[in-house]
Computed example of a mutant assay.
Amino acid sequence: MLFDMDGTLVDSERLWDVALRELAVEYGGSLSDAARVAMVGGDATTSMRILHADLGQQWRDLATSQAWVARRMGELFRTGLVWRPGALALLLAVRAADLPTALVTSTARPLVEIALETLGRDNFDVVVAGDEVRAPKPDPEPYLLAARLLGVPIERCVAIEDSRAGVASALASGAAVLGVPSEVPLDPVEGLHLLETLAGVDLALLGDLLARAEAARP
């Protein structure tokens, strides 16, 4: 099992929204809704490029902006993380069944370490953070790396995602993909199984997704 974090397991996209909009104000501007949507599911560097361009301040230093957001998100993660509907129950069911499980996120390792205090470190055999891959989502590398570290063929993995970038990454990797949108709607695409929530999702449904994905392969 391959779980995305932000917007999938925990309702943290609203916290990113707070930090990003606060940084825009700090820079004397305001973040447009279109720019915010474009950031969902992306890595920190890409998000800062979008923010700077949205403000017409492309001259700003990416590392400085990333550090500001990381500091603010650390504060918000410590006090504001809540589970998405059905996420904890599904994660516990997966672990009770002793299924190899990875957390695959675009968030950098320092913030992931804070989030794991809520998520539970023992709930994951492997954690792949956004600053630990050469090519972040929507590239398939994060999911391919997670499957390799788990020792499970990617074709035998189910990935659960909420963002367009994450879905693209998971589909390109060859995993079976369950999409549960949070902040941004997901378009129906081949290979993507869409649900409104993880509430009620069980191991039988995940097994069915794998079987369908296998049947669809040439």
Rank of each mutant, 00 (worst) to 15 (best):
L2I: 03
D4I: 06
M5W: 03
M5C: 14
D6P: 06
G7R: 06
T8P: 01
T8S: 00
V10F: 03
R14L: 07
L15N: 01
L15S: 00
V18Q: 13
V18N: 05
R21D: 11
S30C: 10
S32I: 07
S32V: 08
D33N: 07
A35K: 03
R36Q: 13
V37L: 14
M39R: 06
G41Q: 06
D43G: 15
D43W: 05
D43T: 03
T45K: 11
R49C: 10
I50D: 01
D54M: 15
D54H: 15
L55N: 14
G56H: 08
G56K: 12
Q57P: 08
W59N: 14
R60T: 11
A63V: 04
A70Y: 10
R71V: 13
R71Y: 09
R72G: 09
E75C: 12
L76S: 07
F77R: 01
R78H: 10
R78Y: 02
T79D: 11
G80F: 05
V82M: 10
R84Q: 05
P85N: 10
A89T: 15
L91T: 15
V94K: 02
A96E: 15
A96S: 14
A97H: 01
A97F: 02
P100W: 05
T101F: 11
A108H: 09
P110M: 12
L116N: 13
L116Y: 09
T118H: 03
T118S: 00
L119S: 11
D122A: 15
D122R: 14
V128T: 08
V128A: 08
A129V: 07
D131C: 14
E132K: 08
E132S: 11
E132W: 06
A135W: 03
D139A: 08
P142W: 03
Y143N: 10
L145C: 03
A147D: 03
V152R: 10
V152P: 04
V152C: 08
I154Y: 04
I154A: 07
E155F: 03
C157Y: 01
V158G: 01
A159F: 01
A159K: 00
I160A: 10
I160N: 11
S163V: 03
S163K: 02
R164S: 08
A165R: 09
V167Y: 02
A168Y: 00
A172F: 02
A172D: 00
G174V: 09
V177A: 04
L178T: 05
G179V: 15
G179F: 12
S182T: 14
V189M: 04
E190K: 06
L194W: 11
L195N: 08
E196K: 12
T197Y: 09
L198K: 08
V201G: 09
D202E: 14
L206Y: 02
L206I: 05
L210M: 12
L210W: 04
L210G: 13
A211I: 09
R212Y: 02
R212A: 08
E214G: 12
A215R: 14
R217H: 09
P218S: 12
